[in-house]
Design a protein around this nucleic acid. Structure first.
Length: 967
RNA sequence: GGCCGAGUGGCGGAAUAGGCAGACGCACGGGACUUAAAAUCCUGUGGAGGGUUACCUCCGUGCGGGUUCGAGUCCCGCCUCGGCCACCA
């Protein structure tokens, strides 16, 4: 009895594809192909848990596109690999004592087996892991390129894509030196060091001693992107504190403008572009300088608080006059406080100033009377973790420094405070506070009873607390100007007076690129040591010929609770060396973050076995950019921003041919667990609770019980028990999680229904990009469909697998032809739109119709098998073979549809009276408006509705509908 | 709090470009086959009301308005849910 048996068919074809190398892709386009298509999945981190059902969602989508494209004659690159460095493997290793390399290899094996089981058409000959020495050798090499590059924002050039650009990453050797360093002849030793330090300060990869996000539980520092808003780590949710440490940073901020501007032309979801735009956070405003009163001589202000000095103070006048001549300096004088504002139009409303507690000016300006309070506040802030800072429920805190500054527009003398709501890392680390038109300033002013002056007229409502645009008031000669105009005018006026200038700021910070981990790429760097064995701050790169710097074999890589990286207790011979010039060297013992490997893997897939280069230029030019990239939205600002940054540096340095790596991006939606129906009871009384009551009742007091879907019935907005309609039932789908016990394992699905059914179901669930709950009976539904397809071809009563007698070489009927061509057209267009759920429903309709025919013309069934192939490749290959083909259908031609076949001679159209459907009539397809109206009027049921009424208008859209407007 | 997205049967979801709301699948009901079950096949299924049978009427795409001959689709104002970011001056 040859029933549909995926467990016989699927391994058979997977073996065939493997043996014949069906999906091995040469870098040269084979004859007959029409252009390349690079389709990429976000390669997985091979965790110990194995594949979950979220992986095959995106992977099936790309696989369908690839299989379709091959049949359309495209030369398709579809690779897979492993993003295998990272914390989980290392933590597992620490727990179990197994080397991370061992667990990583095991996990990769599991993942690979699972992916192969699903029949994806990857070119496995291109497989690699980011942990392979032959791969991370080039990750290190790219780091060296970053290290060798500085960003010249003024440089104008034409890229390999022919576009004129401004701003370029250039070799550090081309960095112009300041006059003091660019002396003629061979520089002396001191100058050489000075030059090196000058260059180091401009490189895209640089060291800094800065407060970083230190996570004691994970034993590492984290990038800003890896710390959640509540101050805990993205991985594990551990507390994170601020701590100064020497770290490697990547100057991604240099590329902020290009990362922002070049988003525009990408075929990415607008939501993801917006996320990146917000993350980069460009704002345009002005820098404005405020002279500090008496700052040159703290505690001895030339004027006293409360003095009426507006516009008359001698120091202020002298300074202003000086600025009028000398202009706005790149860095302000020591007694000047520079602020950044996006609302220079509110300058007249500035009633106080706030500097970040870490601001260097604080020491100069704090008065003796306020000194103790200021120091105490600074000490407390420094100790505060981000968690504490945000957990304070936004209660504003701060301390008066005792100092005052003059508002440059009106000479008004205003107090300077310190407060932690001003961040040292943004803008100038200081603000002018305009409480009337800024929420945060208002909250602060109210807490500390500072004056509030409104300077913007709200066109609709109160001025105080109004942060929108309006008309200027209380602003001297600027009164009456609309906000936008005011901004332009005052920015220009300040610039002319040497008191301010237009300024752009970005929320984006430089990327903290070092981690205190064992299981990551070592930096290809040596530190120079001085005679005492201390770091000098100068580094040397490992020569390209000596790459890779491999991880040393170590037994113990457990963090010691200090920021000392595990590599710092690596074997001596790994750790130390002496340079040919006699300098003692110590390795950089930090390692790279997990993002490093995923920043460029798509380039390596083009040319994975190249030992000479990270990618061959001609091969890169052929395959890049990635035409379609599918993965989860969780990488919207991390991986996708970092890769774009690296790619642009490589582009600037001439190593890649495109400015952007990923032309089209699609995010798959998360798959939730099955919808759960629950009733709640009070633990002590046993009384039923409504879902809302259960929500309010404390944890241990509620018993929740799952009930079957069939025991539940809809009532009003919600659900109730069938047996007892007074009991309300909660219906909800949750994220899959081990603790909830609702995880679906792909292995189980394949074991029961086969890979084709799993693939088909995941595509049939709904739109790719949407969040959707799993449904076990939905899987059975598509399995039944596949079995129906099977029986459309195969005689199940025969002894062996043979074609059903109904499958015959007979000419199809007109109706059969039409359905076939409609199906071809719909499926083709749906694949192009990635609308796989509707493509599948079209194939179901075809099957429903054709199983009812006898005979079933082979001329219709053969193309159908090809349509099905991208979705359910195993059963399609099996049926293709059964139909007498020796070759795999992988490279068979995709069926074409004939528009002539779709034309109907007669169509049914709706007839409306006053917009309400009152009947349907059949009309010739080519009937014009008048003819359609005539046929509709002749229809008895329509006549009944028109009887006794006056027709005042008739709308007839040919091929669509007729509507009578009557009175 | 800000931004983005989404609300359509019991459920997942369809519906070019404003033109027959609910394709396809699930679940459920009825029937056939069977000793029986499974499997399969046929068939019904948005709600309410009416009718003698193949039928008719009204209501219906989160809520309230608007534009239009005609609105799930466009506009205005709300509500709810989901996601992301949250002191960025």
């Amino acid at each position: 009895m040859p029933r549909y048996d995926p467990h016989r068919i699927e391994p058979k074809w997977q073996q065939v594809w493997d043996d014949r190398g069906t999906f091995v892709t040469p870098n040269k386009p084979p004859p007959g192909t029409t252009g390349k298509l690079y389709v990429l999945d976000m390669f997985p981190y091979p965790s110990g848990a194995g594949l979950h059902v979220g992986h095959p969602e995106g992977y099936t989508a790309t696989d369908i596109v690839c299989r379709y494209a091959r049949m359309k004659g495209k030369h398709v690159l579809h690779p897979m690999g492993w993003d295998a460095f990272g914390l989980p493997a290392e933590q597992h290793a620490i727990k179990t004592g197994t080397h991370p390399r061992v667990t990583t290899d095991q996990n990769i094996e599991t993942f690979k087996r699972q992916l192969k089981m699903l029949g994806f058409s990857y070119d496995w000959s291109r497989e690699f892991s980011t942990t392979d020495e032959s791969y991370y050798r080039w990750t290190q090499w790219i780091f060296l390129q970053l290290y060798d590059t500085w960003y010249d924002p003024e440089y104008e050039w034409t890229g390999p894509d022919g576009q004129r650009r401004r701003g370029k990453g250039r070799p550090i050797a081309e960095l112009p030196l300041p006059p003091s360093l660019s002396q003629a002849g061979t520089p002396d030793a001191t100058t050489t060091v000075a030059i090196r330090r000058y260059q180091d300060a401009h490189r895209l990869a640089y060291q800094t001693e800065a407060p970083v996000n230190w996570c004691p539980a994970l034993g590492t520092v984290l990038a800003n992107e890896e710390v959640l808003a509540d101050g805990t780590s993205e991985i594990g949710g551990h507390p994170v504190e601020r701590r100064p440490l020497r770290q490697w940073m990547l100057r991604i901020t240099a590329y902020a403008e290009r990362l922002l501007a070049e988003l525009d032309d990408l075929d990415w979801p607008e939501s993801i572009k917006l996320l990146q735009r917000n993350w980069i956070g460009k704002s345009i405003g002005a820098e404005v300088d405020f002279l500090v009163d008496g700052a040159s001589n703290p505690g001895d202000s030339v004027s006293k608080p409360g003095d009426s000095v507006a516009g008359t103070h001698p120091d202020f006048h002298a300074w202003k006059a000086h600025r009028g001549k000398s202009g706005f300096p790149p860095t302000p004088e020591p007694n000047v406080l520079r602020v950044y504002t996006t609302r220079p139009d509110t300058l007249f409303g500035a009633t106080y100033m706030v500097v970040a507690p870490e601001h260097p000016l604080v020491d100069r300006i704090a008065t003796p009377a306020q000194r103790a309070a200021v120091d105490e506040y600074r000490r407390k802030t420094a100790l505060k973790s981000d968690l504490d800072r945000t957990d304070l429920a936004r209660e504003k805190t701060g301390v008066f420094t005792g100092a005052y500054a003059f508002n440059p527009v009106n000479g008004e003398r205003i107090p300077i405070w310190i407060a932690d709501y001003v961040l040292i890392s943004y803008g100038t680390g200081a603000i002018m506070a305009v409480p009337a038109h800024d929420e945060r300033d208002l909250a602060f002013a109210q807490t500390f009873h500072l004056p509030v002056i409104d300077v913007v007229q709200n066109p609709a409502g109160d001025n105080i607390g109004f942060t929108g645009e309006g008309t200027a008031i209380h602003s001297g000669s600027y009164n009456g100007l609309p906000t936008a105009e005011f901004k332009r005018r005052i920015t220009a006026d300040l610039a002319a007076a040497g008191l301010g200038r237009e300024a752009v700021n970005y929320r984006l910070r430089d990327w903290l690129f070092s981690r205190q981990r064992y299981w990551g790429e070592p930096f290809p760097l040596w530190h120079e040591l001085d005679a005492e064995g201390n770091l000098t701050g100068l580094v040397r790169t490992v020569p390209e010929s000596e790459l890779p710097v491999t991880l040393p074999e170590m037994e113990d890589f457990k963090p010691k609770g200090t920021p000392e990286p595990p590599l710092s207790w690596a074997p001596e011979e790994w750790l130390y060396a002496t340079a040919p010039d006699g300098t003692r060297l110590k390795r950089e013992t930090n390692s790279m973050p997990q993002w490093a490997g995923s920043c460029w893997y798509y380039l390596r897939f083009c040319d994975p076995h190249n030992c000479e280069r990270f990618v061959d230029p001609a091969v890169e030019k052929y395959w890049m950019p990635v035409d379609l990239y599918i993965g989860g939205a969780e990488h919207a600002v991390l991986h996708l921003l970092y890769s774009r940054f690296w790619h642009k540096v490589l582009f600037d340095r001439g190593y890649v041919s495109t400015p952007e790596p990923f032309r089209r991006l699609v995010n798959q939606g998360m798959i939730l667990g099955e919808t759960e129906f629950r009733v709640f009871k009070d633990a002590s009384t046993g009384r039923y609770l409504s879902p809302e009551e259960a929500e309010r009742t404390p944890e241990g007091q509620v018993i929740s019980e799952r009930v079957a879907e069939t025991d539940v019935v809809k009532q009003g907005e919600g659900f109730v028990l069938k047996a007892d309609p007074s009991v309300r039932v909660e219906a909800r789908a949750y994220k899959m999680s081990k603790s909830r016990g609702n995880v679906i394992n792909p292995d189980d699905i394949v074991r029961e229904y086969g890979a084709d059914a799993l693939r088909l179901y995941e595509m049939f669930m709904g739109p790719l990009e949407q969040v959707k709950p799993w449904s076990m009976s939905g899987v059975e539904g598509v399995y039944r469909f596949l079995a129906r397809v099977w029986r459309m071809f195969v005689d199940e009563r025969a002894e062996t697998v043979t074609l059903d007698a109904a499958v015959q070489d007979v000419p199809p009927t007109v109706a059969q032809q039409r359905l076939l061509h409609k199906t071809i057209k719909a499926v083709t267009e749906d694949i192009e739109k990635l609308s796989f759920n509707t493509a599948i429903s079209r194939m179901m309709e075809f099957t429903n119709a054709f199983t009812g025919y006898n005979p079933r013309p082979r001329a219709c069934l053969e193309p159908f098998v090809l349509l099905l192939a991208p979705f359910a490749p195993h059963i399609a290959e099996e049926l293709w073979e059964l139909l007498g083909h020796d070759e795999s259908l992988t490279y068979a031609s995709w069926p074409a549809w004939d528009e002539q076949m779709l034309i109907e001679t007669e169509i049914e159209i709706p007839v409306q009276v006053n917009g309400k459907l009152r009947g349907k009539v059949r009309v010739p397809a080519e009937a014009d408006a008048a003819r359609m109206q005539a046929i509709a009027e002749a229809e008895p049921s329509i006549q009944a509705h028109l009887a006794g009424k006056q027709v005042i208008k008739v709308v007839a859209v040919p091929g669509r509908m007729v509507n009578f407007v009557v009175r």
